[in-house]
């Protein structure tokens, strides 16, 4: 039983990070139809910038804030310099642009920082907390709590503010959104900035547990994308559920079956799910209007 809770907690922890990455995918996809494969690089920037700014003597909370700011700036630049000028291009072109941006950011990080792995100190010590016999790192609660706060903030923003509803309206019907006076360019910039912030926070929260380096973004983007697809692309709640589910699949698969095939196991389950339900677990059926 202790083992079960151990796997459960580690699955939820890593799942929360996947959920945040998936949420970033969802936000940008909804506002602009772009699947942003540079999403993982925001996570990398969050961790790496915090590490290096903190190493320069800046207190950790301030370093984290700087890292989020840098990621948001990069997200906005990505939108204004690469996506906006190509507006009207087919979605595939835009996706390839984001892949290019991802490679560029990784290369820049490799030159600007280094190729080593880096660690951040845990936010509240390393003494494990005993939970139903499982030894849980305190940082796990930071990750879970941080993810919960972000999901809640995003929910309140989308459901309770006019600007948030404008984002949803843009996602639902871009033409109608423009006709009521919503500046859809601003909404898309907002989505890129917001996604970058969410990704950076995820990167900062997880770095004390998993370490970070210039290339952590690649696999995270892949996992986050898989989670978003699993939950149903474009559905924020689906993204969170898909992320947590993917984390749990990995943890239990690695724990009970084989840790060698940890990554493969999760992807196989996703393939099976998508084969049976192409819209994802929570995806809406796409109805073609005539």
């Amino acid at each position: 039983m202790a083992e079960f809770f151990q796997f459960l907690m580690s699955g939820l922890t890593v799942g929360a990070v996947y959920a945040l990455v998936a949420l970033g995918f969802t936000l940008i996809y909804n506002a602009s139809d772009v699947v942003n494969f540079a999403q993982g690089e925001f996570v990398m920037l969050g961790g790496m910038v915090t590490v290096f700014v903190a190493a320069a003597g800046v207190p950790l909370p301030l370093a984290a804030l700087i890292a989020v700011t840098v990621a948001v700036a990069v997200g906005l630049l990505l939108y204004w310099l690469a996506i906006e000028p190509a507006r009207g291009a087919p979605a595939v072109t835009l996706i390839i642009i984001t892949i290019g941006a991802s490679i560029l950011l990784r290369g820049a990080a490799q030159m600007l920082f280094d190729k080593q792995f880096h660690k951040l100190p845990s936010f509240s010590g390393d003494a494990p907390i005993n939970l139903f016999g499982a030894a849980v790192q305190p940082q796990s609660f930071w990750v879970l709590g941080g993810a919960a706060v972000i999901v809640l903030l995003l929910y309140v923003f989308l459901e309770r503010t006019v600007l948030g509803k404008a984002v949803l309206a843009t996602a639902a019907n871009r033409l109608a959104a423009r006709l009521v006076g919503i500046n859809t360019t601003t909404v898309m910039a907002l989505a890129f900035g917001g996604s970058a912030a969410i990704g950076a926070v995820a990167g900062i929260l997880i770095t004390p547990i998993t370490l970070t380096s210039y290339d952590v973004g690649t696999l995270l983007a892949l996992k986050g994308f898989a989670a978003a697809m699993l939950g149903g692309m474009g559905n924020p709640l689906g993204a969170v559920a898909g992320g947590l589910l993917l984390g749990l699949l990995e943890a239990f698969g690695a724990g009970y079956l084989s840790s060698t095939y940890k990554d493969a196991f999760a992807f196989i389950v996703i393939l099976v799910v998508l084969f049976a339900m192409p819209q994802g677990l929570f995806g809406r059926r796409v109805v073609e209007r005539v």
């Binding site: 006019v162 309206a169 639902a172 019907n173 959104a177």
Partner: peptide
């Protein structure tokens, strides 16, 4: 061309 997933009230507010 309404905002399908949003409520009638939200459509009018927008």
């Amino acid at each position: 061309q309404v905002f399908g997933p949003l409520s009638v009230e939200d459509n009018l507010r927008l």
